[in-house]
Write a protein that binds this DNA or RNA. Structure first.
Length: 215
DNA sequence: TTATCGATTCTCT
DNA sequence: GAGAATCGATAAA
């Protein structure tokens, strides 16, 4: 199992990440997740059409810098003032593309994930989160794994605190469709760059972005 | 079941 | 200063 899995580009790599597992070790313990839903984002230097929905669509900036780094590393960004999201860099160093992890099934450290999700927002969150919702949605997945930008952005997935394992075989049944929350053409049917394991209960609900062309 | 809205702050123009 | 690769609660149908 090697870094070669993360080449040549996010669109090529994304389907193969379904069923893979990613674990992160924190001060408070370890959580592992089986990936069930991803989205590809292309940027500077990657093949295919111009991806207007990508953070690295035009140029390198302070935020997207790690997307230009070596493949098999993490790109973590801060979203909507309260969430982190985890991407896996999927293109040669100097070019930019990445796969956003949108959802997964917690297969190790469910209690810890539960505690992190609960403490994440307020104190007394009464009822426990149902298991299939623990890592559903990019913000929730990152929270379950304990991912933050200062701690994890740019880090190698093949070194501590991460541990990555490729999928055993091809995903059972895969579906694809437009990406979630992306506005304009890039969020429409011309970019079916979201991939998920068909019928898996941990896959997040689809939400269209603004001004999405119907089709 | 589907749609809308508020929270909260970083990033880039 | 506007908008954002979101989430969860609440309202409407």
């Amino acid at each position: 199992m090697s870094r070669e899995l993360f080449l040549p580009s996010a669109l090529e790599v994304a389907p193969h990440l379904l069923g893979a597992t990613i674990a992160a070790e924190g001060d408070d313990g370890r959580v592992a997740i089986r990936i069930t839903e991803v989205e590809a984002y292309h940027g500077v230097g990657t093949p295919g059409p111009y991806d207007a929905g990508s953070h690295s669509r035009d140029r390198r900036t302070e935020r997207n810098a790690s997307m230009f780094g070596p493949p098999g590393h993490a790109y973590v960004y801060f979203s909507y003032g309260m969430h982190f999201a985890l991407n896996l860099v999927c293109s040669p160093e100097g070019t930019a593309s990445g796969v956003l992890l949108r959802a997964g099934e917690v297969i190790e450290g469910a209690e810890l994930a539960q505690a992190r999700r609960a403490s994440n927002r307020g104190e007394g969150s009464a009822t426990p989160i149902r298991p299939h919702l623990l890592a559903r949605g990019p913000g929730n997945l990152a929270a379950a794994l304990g991912i933050t930008r200062p701690e994890h952005d740019g880090r190698d997935l093949f070194a501590a605190p991460f541990r990555f394992e490729a999928a055993q075989g091809p995903a059972a049944e895969m579906s694809s469709g437009p990406r979630v929350g992306v506005s304009g053409e890039a969020g429409g049917p011309a970019f079916p760059w979201r991939f998920w394991i068909a019928g898996d209960p941990t896959v997040s609900a689809y939400r269209a972005g603004r001004n999405v062309p119907r089709g």
